[in-house]
Computed example of a mutant assay.
Amino acid sequence: MNATTLTITPLTVPASLEDPDAADFLAFGALNRLVCDEATGLPDLAPDAAQMLAAWQENTDSLSLGFVARAGDDVVGMLAMDFAQEAEARAAEIDVLVPESSAGLGVEDALLDLAEREAHARGRTLLQKWTLHRPIETERMIVPRTGWGRIPAIPLTDALERHGYVCEQVERNSELDLRADPAPLVAALAEAEAHAGPDYRTVHWMAPTPVEHRDGYAAILARLSTDAPSGDMEFVAEEWDADRVIRRDARNTAAGQAFSVVAVQHVPTGALVAYNELLIGADRSGVTHQFGTLVASEHRGHRLGMIVKCANLLRWRELMPASAVVSTFNAEENRPMLSINEAIGFVPVSYAGAWQKRI
Rank of each mutant, 00 (worst) to 15 (best):
A343M: 04
L79H: 04
S225N: 08
P152C: 08
P210R: 09
E86A: 11
T5G: 11
H299R: 11
L279W: 10
A153Y: 01
A27T: 14
V68M: 10
M320C: 15
H266V: 07
Q85N: 12
P144E: 10
A352P: 01
S339P: 03
W148G: 08
S350H: 10
A354C: 15
G77E: 00
A23Y: 03
V267I: 15
G123M: 11
S102Y: 01
A311W: 00
E238G: 06
F235H: 14
R284W: 04
V349I: 15
C310F: 01
S101L: 03
I151W: 00
R201N: 07
F259C: 14
V261E: 09
L160F: 00
F259G: 00
V245N: 00
P43W: 01
T125W: 01
P336T: 05
Q257W: 05
A354G: 15
V326E: 06
V166L: 09
E18S: 15
V96Q: 01
T293A: 12
N32G: 09
P10I: 04
L178E: 12
P210M: 10
P14W: 07
G164F: 01
D61C: 06
E137W: 06
E238K: 10
W56I: 01
I220W: 05
L224T: 15
D19E: 15
T4S: 14
D177P: 13
G41N: 13
F329I: 06
V68K: 11
P152M: 07
R248P: 00
A274W: 06
I136V: 15
L34A: 13
A153C: 06
Q290E: 14
I142N: 01
E318I: 00
Q169W: 00
T293R: 07
T253N: 02
D227F: 07
E239I: 12
P99R: 00
W316F: 13
D181N: 10
H299C: 08
E175P: 00
I142V: 13
L294N: 03
E298N: 14
V75A: 09
A110G: 11
R145Q: 15
V261P: 01
P99D: 03
V287F: 07
A352T: 14
Y165W: 02
L126H: 07
F291S: 12
A69M: 05
A237N: 11
L314C: 03
P43A: 06
A324E: 14
E332I: 07
D109T: 14
S285Y: 04
M78W: 02
I359N: 08
N334T: 09
H120M: 07
L304T: 02
E212C: 10
G305S: 09
R179I: 05
D232L: 11
F259A: 07
S297F: 08
P14M: 04
G353R: 08
L294T: 06
S102T: 06
T288V: 15
V68C: 12
S339C: 06
V267C: 08
E333C: 13
D24A: 14
M206G: 06
H213G: 07
V325K: 10
L279V: 15
G197T: 08
A331R: 02
S339Y: 04
G106P: 01
L313H: 10
R223I: 03
V347S: 13
R162Y: 01
A110E: 02
G197E: 02
Y217C: 11
T12G: 04
R124P: 09
Q57S: 11
G41I: 09
Y217V: 12
P268T: 10
A228P: 04
E238D: 14
A39L: 09
L189S: 04
